[in-house]
């Protein structure tokens, strides 16, 4: 009996390893395609040669200064948003939770827009400030949504949380449009593309400003995987197993908000990644967070990378924001999940 258990476990582990490896391979493939997508055509061989420093100066410029930072950013943003969604779903035990749908992205966006209005992106902006500012915006919004959807005796029902989030997101987006138009009308176009979810900060300094946050928060969430597993079992079980749930829940929520805020501070307000990524991952590897979190990070990265590549490929030389492409995939998925959700 014991032997067959370990065998089954080993089987699961091999399967999970396969899933993770395939995802990485897929990301590498899309990465190569994406490197090749754009106004200046480069063959895969040229891409590889340039990556190893053997290309022409022009090829190096295109790859290293334009395409590579953007691709890296897509991957990072996808990871951040998907893991944020994964944590939100685990903590609120709400299958439809996503930082975009819950309005957290919009809150971060408002702060980012105000910042950009005062420090236009053409000047030497203190970019490293962006994730911190976005975190405060996202955190304030999350707190507002929590308060508004909390009802004494009833707690927070999944549907009311979502409705509140959607409404708050709509309100904040409107406020963003009005405020930025008033502060700096020339930035209106920027706000519009931000709202549509474009990967805008395609520059190494944005990558560098985002990277430390993502590493710290992703690691932190990963180390808390067991807590997420326990929280998933329900409050009573979690208490029984000795978790101080309210404290853990708040810390994890803060981490999720931080991940979402930091991610959208350098990309546009991309929704649905935090919804689709974790759900796909759960289908692939199950609900154990030790495996689920890395898988969700990879599916999220793949999703945003594919969306950004499609968006750039379909309409050369201009582009369709990644957020639009993701919404076209994500919204039907949300509807599907909604039809299966029970009150």
């Amino acid at each position: 009996m014991k032997l067959s258990m370990t065998q089954a476990q080993r089987k699961v582990r091999t399967k999970n390893l396969w899933v993770l490896t395939s995802l990485v391979i897929l990301i590498v493939i899309v990465f190569m395609i994406s490197m090749n997508t754009g106004y200046i055509k480069l063959s895969p061989l040229e891409v590889v040669r340039t990556l190893f420093g053997l290309g022409t100066a022009q090829q190096a410029l295109v790859l290293f200064d334009f395409r590579l930072p953007r691709i890296v950013l897509s991957i990072l943003v996808g990871m951040g948003l998907a893991v944020s969604g994964c944590v939100l779903q685990g903590v609120t035990r709400n299958a439809l939770a996503d930082p975009g749908i819950l309005g957290i992205n919009a809150g971060a966006g408002l702060v980012v827009m105000l910042f950009i209005s005062f420090f236009p992106s053409t000047t030497d902006t203190p970019v490293f400030m962006l994730p911190i500012l976005a975190f405060t915006g996202a955190g304030a919004t999350a707190a507002i949504i929590y308060v508004l959807s909390y009802k004494r005796h009833e707690g927070i029902s999944p549907i009311r949380l979502l409705l509140t989030g959607i409404a708050v997101a709509a309100g904040i987006s409107s406020a963003t449009i009005i405020l930025t138009l008033r502060l700096s009308p020339e930035n209106y176009q920027f706000v519009a593309t931000w709202l549509a979810g474009s990967i805008w900060g395609s520059n190494w300094k944005f990558v560098l400003s985002l990277l430390p946050w993502l590493i710290v928060l992703l690691l932190f969430v990963y180390l808390k995987a067991n807590v997420l597993n326990v929280l998933n079992l329900g409050d009573l079980t979690a208490i029984g197993l000795g978790a101080s749930i309210e404290k853990e829940r708040r810390i994890l929520l803060a981490a999720a908000v931080g991940l979402a805020g930091a991610s959208v501070s350098v990309s546009g307000g991309i929704g649905f990644v935090g919804l689709v990524g974790p759900h796909l991952a759960r289908q692939l590897v199950g609900a154990r967070h030790q495996v689920l979190i890395p898988t969700a990070a990879l599916t999220g990265a793949l999703l945003v990378l594919v969306a950004d590549t499609i968006g750039r490929w379909i309409l050369q030389p201009s582009e369709i924001p990644a957020g639009i492409v993701v919404a076209i995939i994500g919204a039907p998925y949300f509807l599907y999940l909604l039809s299966r959700l029970q009150d």
């Binding site: 439809l96 749908i101 549907i159 009311r160 979502l162 409705l163 959607i166 549509a196 929704g271 649905f272 309409l315 201009s318 369709i320 924001p321 957020g323 639009i324 492409v325 919404a327 076209i328 994500g330 919204a331 039907p332 949300f334 509807l335 909604l338």
Partner: peptide, 23 residues
């Protein structure tokens, strides 16, 4: 509430498609 949630998702989808078509 469920109808409003469905409405929000459908609006997001159709809005994204409209923007895509417009672009």
């Amino acid at each position: 509430m469920r109808l409003v949630l469905a409405g929000a998702a459908v609006s997001a989808l159709l809005g994204a498609l409209s923007e895509g078509v417009a672009l």
